[in-house]
Design a protein around this nucleic acid. Structure first.
Lengths: 214, 214, 214, 214
DNA sequence: AATGAATGAGATTTCATTCAT
DNA sequence: CATGAATGAAATCTCATTCAT
């Protein structure tokens, strides 16, 4: 018995999403033409409007999908707790890097989304904002138990330490992403290990300072 | 005594530039309509094209002006050298903050420009890129002399320390800018002093680590 | 059986070309508005740009089409060689006249094109120039064999004779075209025969002079 | 006693006319911008409108002036009657050529005007049409007396002979004008004498035919 | 009277969205 | 259902004409 065709062809829908992701990520909302998405998805323009209503909703759907995809993967308990803060944060960062390598477009899209926040329809902001928050939550959830075992200098709180750690790792990740853009041949985390050694030193500085004890 | 009308009326040109700055900064290139700029500048559409040729050149002129304005001011030797690294970087940051408060649109425009780098016409990239470079150069020029008087832990270079300092201050500035967006009532550096105290602690961490000596 | 819609609807494209031909021919490039072409072709403005890119390319396409159409028809071996020069040139002219009656707009367009040569984009000139050359080549190809059988007066070359023939026939054609403009009711060559008798006399003059032998 | 300034400065008006003539002649009506005319005339745009009302009237004034100038000069009895038709027509043509050399822009303007006749406002047509008529009248006035002394072949009228003469001389003049466009270094009639020898042969053909008597 | 900056109607061009096939 | 040709509102850009100085 022939199954009646689904009202929405999931294969085509996936192609549209993928095309939209790629183009929105690299070109932004306004500069990306629906024509181009349809062409890249090998689908008619009309179908895009049938499936997504209009360009803005397509953008939101793309944003949501990127967010969901990253969150789904991040939620996996990939990172192991450990007594060594530096090792742990480096590991976590190594993992984030692998995500960036796997999902560069999703990262780019959400990053742009963050910048364009104002221009986004209200319903779109939540994804971008949640993404930011979730990222910090994650680190916090991991790092706080380790902090519990450490003694802080007087006048310095765990929040301070966490903030600085976040600044350093996200600054590092940003530089890292730029590096990727100019070295598209890099596709595995292994190739990034030399750069990760930098991060370890940076984190060590945060932990113990760069000033030699008198 | 009234001045005779100039071939390019500097008052109107300034109004156009200001309108373009405000709208491009908040809306980006594509979303900003020339009509809107003309309306905001209280000038006819035609005049914009007479003064700037076309929309893209108007954008570049706006970018250049924002860049020039910030650079001109930054170049002033506002910050004093000092033996105390933390005090000095905090001062420098306080100064950058005051610039952001004074020129929020210029900052926003160049920040967006950085994101949109790909989409910018080649001639526009230089301003954005130089802006990034200049910012780091500035820090370096200030900080290196201070570093010269300090002794680094073994295995840690001045470059490492500078990088971490940059990550922390720029992370801090970013959070700061977000804060400004959600607190538009804040207009003076004085009101920001409590937040600057945070930065001091963060920098102290970079200098000496957050871990209490055993 | 109805044909499936083609990527470029030949019916609409033909309507656009026809409208463009009519309007460009009578009004020239600048004075003809794309809006008017769209209206005359009963097509939306947008479609014209989808099919032809921009106004200039539409003009060139129209020029090319006019040229091709005329050349295609001229190339047919309509005119028969004959021993009688006057009869032959008159026949050829009768044929050209029938073309003008059939394709008055194409003639007008290329004629205007010739005048506007300077203002034409370089790529457009070739059609107009080739048209001019082809026209003369054609006459030459026909007339030279007949000349071969004739004896010229001393001091007069075949080139001289050909040149004068060309001047007379093209002068005649020009007057003819003016006549058509002021007598739009004339649509068949038959109606033009009285005028063609004039041409025969003119050609006879070229052959034997108008001066009675002493 | 200082004379009060005329309401219209004749020097400036002349510059405007000259600029308009040059630009309309080479670029046609539509392609010529009022801005360009003002710049070439070293006069403000506003003055052009004050003196001529609008662009169209400026064009008509330019057309009229070109016509008047040529007519005024042509009316001079430069050409002498003579018994030899060929010599006389050649002389007349030589004179026309000298006019073309002296007033190339006026010729070009009226030539273009002839082509654009349809697009011209009705009031402009008369100049162009009169120009055409006057040109033929002139030839007629000169040639008919000579014809009176000649005997025509049976079946051939003076009108026929005149028409053919006109075709040949105007065809010749046209080719001549093209020659001038591609040889702008030529500025005197003397340099054109070789080409005038061609015309003599052409006219001889019209007179006696090119066919050698049996 | 002369200027040329300023205007805005109108032209060209783009592209999200619709809809006949 | 799917298509992509067709649409037209809205954007960019041009330039004859006006008018404050």
């Amino acid at each position: 018995m022939k199954r009646t065709r689904l009202p929405e062809d999931p294969v085509k829908k996936a192609r549209m999403q993928a095309a939209a992701l790629a183009l929105f990520a690299s070109g932004g909302y306004q500069a990306t033409k629906v024509d181009a998405i349809a062409a890249k998805a090998q689908v008619s323009k009309g179908l895009i409007f049938k499936y997504f209503g209009n360009k803005e909703q397509l953008y939101l759907a793309t944003l949501r999908q990127a967010y969901d995809r990253l969150m789904a993967i991040m939620d996996e308990a990939v990172w192991q707790e450990s007594g060594d803060l530096v090792a742990m944060v480096t590991n976590a960062t190594r993992y984030k890097i692998s995500l960036q390598l796997q999902y560069p477009q999703e990262f780019q899209l959400l990053l742009n989304g963050f910048i364009h926040l104002k221009q986004l329809p209200a319903s779109g902001r939540q994804y971008v904002e949640q993404m930011m928050v979730a990222n910090q939550d994650l680190t916090q959830r991991l790092v706080l138990p380790v902090f519990a075992k450490m003694t802080f200098k007087p006048g310095i709180t765990a929040t301070d330490a966490l903030t600085v750690l976040n600044y350093v790792t996200s600054g590092y990740l940003q530089k890292f992403q730029q590096y990727l853009l100019s070295h598209p041949e890099v596709t595995t985390v292994a190739e990034m290990e030399p750069l990760l050694a930098d991060l370890t030193r940076y984190l060590r500085i945060v932990e113990y300072g760069f000033v030699a004890p008198a």
